[in-house]
């Protein structure tokens, strides 16, 4: 069934997901939503990598290994990101990135 779907469909979905994630990361007024945007972007990369692996070089393991590492990095990033968000919230009672303006010119 998979063979009926051309490669570029996967790439288009990934590109759309990446753009959505990027928009979310840049536009949302909530640090947790920004974090979710980054996770969407990382998942777009995973779709890319797996689609390329399946269609371009299924005999190699590079794409699979890369995807696994992206997962691990995403998990570590989420953990660190949430920890930093909590520490900011404890200090300022807000997680709006635009209100982070203690330091200015």
């Amino acid at each position: 069934m998979l063979n009926g779907i051309p490669l570029h469909w996967f790439l288009l979905v990934a590109a759309a997901l990446f753009c959505l994630g990027l928009f979310g990361a840049l536009a949302r007024k909530n640090a947790i939503a920004v974090l979710m945007g980054v996770e969407l972007m990382l998942n777009a990369v995973n779709i890319n990598l797996l689609a390329f692996w399946r269609y371009v070089n299924p005999a190699g393991t590079g794409g699979l290994a890369f995807t696994a590492f992206v997962f691990i990095v995403a998990a570590a990033e989420a953990a660190v990101g949430l920890a930093l968000i909590i520490s900011v919230y404890r200090n300022t009672q807000s997680i709006d990135p635009e209100k982070l303006d203690q330091m200015k010119l």
């Binding site: 640090a31 990101g81 930093l84 900011v88 404890r90 200090n91 990135p97 982070l100 203690q102 330091m103």
Partner: peptide
């Protein structure tokens, strides 16, 4: 406990991860 440091870490994280 220092607001500036916490903010610095979060800003670094947001720009860096994107």
């Amino acid at each position: 406990d220092t607001p500036r440091s916490a903010e610095s870490g979060l800003k670094y994280f947001v720009f860096g991860s994107v």
